[in-house]
Design a protein around this nucleic acid. Structure first.
Lengths: 352, 352
DNA sequence: TTGTAAGCGTTATCAT
DNA sequence: ATGATAACGCTTACAA
């Protein structure tokens, strides 16, 4: 026999389809006793609802929004195009995905963006923004409105989000330190640590993991204080140039932020020693190129397509009140060398 | 307006639902002229069929089989449980997945297993077996019977499979060489290369990539001829012990096969120098443990869950004649250090 | 060669 | 508080 349907369930419980549906979806207007009966029958015949049929019958469209920083770097534009691509692929599964850029460093903007969601009929949101008391509250309010919320790439551990989609930044920092330590060998020297800003949680976490491993496993290396670039290329050029001049025993450089373009070109301009180990985050056309040219020794990254699809799957599952397969949603900290760089496909698109 | 349906399409083309369906599914019994009309209308109104509704209406169940080697190692049992898990998750999406263990080194057994598929009503098969003329022909026959075929983990490039699900082994070998080269530093020495057998394509490919990188980027290292263990622990113990004794300048060991248990325990027994770089393939409880203990420097792996889900998605898409999202099906060559080891979850199961 | 109508397993709108 | 019954968008006998 094939899987039991709602009809079988209705028969088994001695009620109508409508009542079964009410119980299944927790709608009210059913006597406690009837609920019992139905639940017993569910258990009895091993009923599990067919999600696809449910989605079809609901004739409902889901609308998801990614709230992302408005800063312009390649990592973010890759996310944006990945959302667009996923949106295209899901258009025919009743899902719409949009992207909303806001100055996420201004909590007020984030709060405002989140506040507008309910009015726009949004079913779920993925937020990439630093945690502040204001955003925390806003997330709480959004969820109270029945909208699913995941934090995306940057977690807000104290916010009432449904889930975080991204990697553990402490481990990412530990990974960077391990690579640098092992690539550098036994000779002592200094590692320059460069970040856009040290204010963000991900920078702090990565730095924390990084330092822990350097101290414990590679005590002969000395990690510099974090040099902040403020995403300003003139400043990047200046601070980097100073730092390089002041570091005769330079062995390695850790570019901690996802936007490493400015730093990378400043490095190129200065002509750092070729055996200087350089590690950056996130796979972009620039880091790919640098890996191939040998300027970068390794890149630590998270698969953007996976990130976006995972967020969408989780949001949808929440919206439909359906289960998720946990093992599929774990985002991995990937290490990329020139040797295991994913090959660029002609058409990274939908194909039949 | 919402997306156009088959009804809209029928209206636009001035035909009935049935005719639309015939055209959509390439069934015959439609005049060329009518097909034209429908196709024009499809283009006109931008029709795209709703896959979920189609699957529901087809009231068809899909049955997929994984043909796997019957050899008992942890990598394979992880695949088996992953298939079981995915099967459980897909039970309610009209998909059944089973696993079939055969002595894949015997082409005849593989041919026989593949031959039985059609009789069992299988809709698609994932095959992990070495390529031989016999298996190649068998795959051709299976496809001629309308069954979708993917090669799995081990490709058969010359077979008429629909697709290969797995990593590029040449790149995997290059990755191993890069890690070993960079972890070893500048001092010369020997790298021991150990494999179950050198006969398999994946061993050959990995070895090929490995040698290319060692020669080009790390000429001060010398890679030993491949030492074969034949998956026999007594033999492993013996050949490894001989090799270690004969290699005073040992710097690194590359365990090229997915089953490294025997070699790893032989290494433990012999007490290799702690700074000897050891790299293995595939994440198992043993390699995880060895990474944590420091016995292994790195593990090169492919995500088993991803592998299995990808195979299932592709087989299903073929069976339903639906498109796939390419970017989702690219299997990555992952590098795992202790620092980026995926955390073990309490329940790697389905959760709500 | 083409069309009509009855489902697929849910949900939603009415009645009762 | 509960039950018929008509959708949802597609496929599939069975007719014509």
């Amino acid at each position: 026999m094939s899987k039991p349907t709602t009809r079988d369930l209705a028969a088994a419980a001695g009620v109508s389809l409508a009542t079964v549906d009410r119980v299944l979806n927790g709608r009210d207007g059913v006597r406690a006793k009837t609920i019992e009966k139905v639940n017993a029958a569910i258990h009895d015949i091993g009923f599990v609802r067919d999600q696809t049929a449910a989605t079809l019958a609901r004739k409902r469209f889901y609308y998801f929004v990614f709230v992302l920083p408005d800063r312009q770097d390649e990592f973010l534009s890759l996310i944006v195009s990945s959302v667009a691509e996923a949106g295209r692929a899901l258009r025919h599964e009743r899902v719409t995905a949009r992207t909303l850029r806001v100055p996420t460093n201004d909590p007020h903007s984030v709060v405002q963006a989140l506040g507008a969601l309910a009015r726009d009929g949004v079913d779920g949101v993925a937020v990439m923004a630093p945690e502040t008391p204001q955003t925390r509250d806003a997330i709480q309010r959004v969820r109270d409105q029945g909208i699913a919320v995941v934090t995306f790439v940057a977690d807000q551990p104290n916010a009432a989000r449904d889930r975080f989609i991204g990697i553990n930044d402490v481990d990412a920092g530990r990974t960077a330190a391990t690579l640098i330590g092992r690539f550098c060998g036994a000779a002592p020297g200094t590692v320059l640590v460069i970040a856009e800003t040290i204010q963000s949680r991900d920078s702090l976490d990565r730095r924390h993991g990084f330092d822990a491993v350097v101290q414990q496993d590679f005590p002969h290396l000395h990690a510099s204080p974090t040099i902040e670039t403020y995403a300003d290329s003139a400043r990047t050029e200046r601070v980097l140039s100073n730092a390089l001049a002041a570091t005769p025993d330079l062995r390695a450089i850790y570019l901690m932020s996802s936007a490493s373009a400015a730093a990378l070109s400043a490095l190129d301009a200065h002509g750092v020693a070729p055996d200087c180990v350089v590690i950056a985050h996130e796979l972009t056309s620039l880091t790919r190129q640098s890996l191939i040219s040998g300027r970068l020794s390794a890149v630590i990254t998270q698969d953007i397509g996976h990130l976006v699809r995972s967020a969408l799957r989780v949001l949808r599952a929440k919206a439909e009140n359906a289960p998720t397969v946990e093992s599929q949603e774990r985002i991995r900290i990937e290490i990329l060398l020139e040797a295991n760089l994913p090959r660029l496909e002609e058409t990274p698109e939908v194909s039949g």
